[in-house]
Each structure stands twice: as structure tokens, then as C-alpha cells.
Write a protein that binds this DNA or RNA. Sequence first.
DNA 1: TTCAAAATCACCCTAAAGTATGACCGGAAA
DNA 2: TTTCCGGTCATACTTTAGGGTGATTTTGAA
Lengths: 158, 158
Amino acid sequence: MTLNYYWTRYRSVLIYGILLAALLLLLKWLEWRFIIVDYAFEMYAGFIAILFTGLGIWLALKLSKPKTATVYIEKEILIKDNGEFVLNELELNRLGLSKRELEVLQLMAQGLSNQEIAGHLFVSLNTIKTHSSKLFEKMDVQRRTQAVDMAKKLSLIP
Amino acid sequence: MTLNYYWTRYRSVLIYGILLAALLLLLKWLEWRFIIVDYAFEMYAGFIAILFTGLGIWLALKLSKPKTATVYIEKEILIKDNGEFVLNELELNRLGLSKRELEVLQLMAQGLSNQEIAGHLFVSLNTIKTHSSKLFEKMDVQRRTQAVDMAKKLSLIP
DNA sequence: TTCAAAATCACCCTAAAGTATGACCGGAAA
DNA sequence: TTTCCGGTCATACTTTAGGGTGATTTTGAA
């Protein structure tokens, strides 16, 4: 049915209209309640309000057409040679990562959970948590995903 | 309850309605108080007109979809010495990932938390959770780190 | 216009991740 | 020898991630 269609399409506008109508009715009720004689002004004010609200909406919709320009930010990070992976020992030393921490980082990058990493390295889950915490602190990140992302960019892992 | 739901959805309309009611009541009060209507009606009407034009503009900007800021997707292209990133559309179609899901995946790979992704895409945290859940299901993985690892291998992300 | 997929959001719950603190041990450096 | 650090582990706690369900809205193609 067309009525239903237009309802779903312009629901917001219609709800706004209904709200306005309800408010005007409320005002009229207040008038009647307190016996205010000169109600002409309220009607006038309401009319002006509706009119200029519409004008404002029209103005906003007409004038604000900022065609969103897609911004491309090119950021050159590091050169990963077309050959094989070479560990960036400079960065590794700069960050001060230990052997074990690097192992944990590598397994993290393969998508393993802490529990699985613990299994691979034959240590407890708590140990992995300690390693990863120190790892994040040294790399100055908050999450394993950030650590992996940074490690790949710094060529700490393949 | 669903009350909270409707509040977040129609907040703008409700706030506008409340403001409108408050303003009209204020005007009525001023009228009773100082009886300025008789002398400065034009000024009064002008005041209302300006006010509601502003409100109309505000309302339009609030209700119109934020299509202004949404398209910024391509971000941080890291260039390596040879060969740029080309999206593997075959794999993309095979997995059946939607546009939005791919966006979420890209932001995930940059180490963002779900909360941060929600902020970037101007949606709620729950939406990101839904997207990521479907994403993991389609990619047949359990964790975001696995998803990122696979996506890189399949060349779905740089 | 109609319909299905995509997108959005909420709520509840569990699992995993991360933080903080303290402890123990063994080897290397001072 | 003492000190320091890496590695190990625990306990307790907070935060984030993820699973499942259900709902409405937007959108694009038929």
C-alpha cells in the first residue's frame, strides 16, 4: 500500500509533525485551562516557528552539500625487500625485546591465543601473560593486534 | 528494555520537541510577566523566526545522514619497493565478505579495538561486534588475530 | 513496488586478554 | 659475593572480545 510506503520513508518527518501538532494542542489546552483570551499570538508564533523551522531545514539541506572528498594518506614505512625476510636487529635492540618475547610475538602474529602459545612453548598461561605484558610495554602498545601490526612494519616478523 | 533503544534512535526529535515546548512556555511566561507583546511584536516575531531557523538547521543537520564523513576508507597505504597492494577479489567473493565487513577487517589489522573501530565508522560497539562475528564465521576463524593473519595471506588487506 | 541482503543496535552471557603485584630461581655481570 | 635480569608462575582483578538471539532500518536489485 502506498500509505505504508510513505510512512516508512518519511517516518521522521511525520513523527516530527505529529509532535508539533501535539504540542500545539497542549498549548491550546493550557489556554483553555487558564482562560487566556488573546490566543492569536500563540497561533501566530507557532505558525512562524513552523515556517522558519522549515526554512531552516531547507536552507541546511540546500546549502550544506559538502561532497566528501576521499582523502588518501600515503605513508611509507619501511622497505621490505622482494627477497626473503630479514630480521631488523636494529629495531629489535632498540626496543630491547628478549628472545622469549620475540618468540611470543611471532606466535601471536600467527593468530594463536595465549593458551595456545603456552602450549607451544611448554610453559603456563600466566607466563605468556607476563611476557605479553612486558612486550606491550616495551613496544608501547595496548593490544596484541597493535603489536603484530607494528612488528610487521618494523620487520621484526615476516 | 527497548525504551533505551528508542531513546537513542529518536533522541534528536525528542530533544527538539522538548526544547520547543520549553521555549514556547518561556515566551508565554515572558508575555505574562512584562507584557511586551503589544509594543515589540515585530521584534518578538523576528526573534522567533531567527531562533527557529537555527533550530531547523540544527535539526536538519542532525537528522540527515552523516554521509559527509563516512567515506575516508583508504588510509595508510604502505608502499614497498616493488609491487603495490592489489585486492584479491576472487578470495573476497569466495568468502562472501561485505563492504562493511572488509572495512572492519582493515581497521582490525591496524590494531584498533572494537570500540575504536566503532568510533572510526560512526556506529555503535554492538554493530562492530556483529560485523566481526559474521566476519569470523565467514573466514572460519575464532580470533581477530587469526582473521588478520589470514587476510594478509589472502591479500585481502595490505 | 517488492523482497532479500546488508547494516544497524540492544541485551545477556562466557571466554580471553590484559593489568598489577609478588614471588622464586639461575646465570651473568659488577 | 652480591646484584641484576630473564624466565617462570600465581592470584586477583578489570577490560575487551566473542557468541547467541532478536529486532528494526536501509538499500539495492529484480
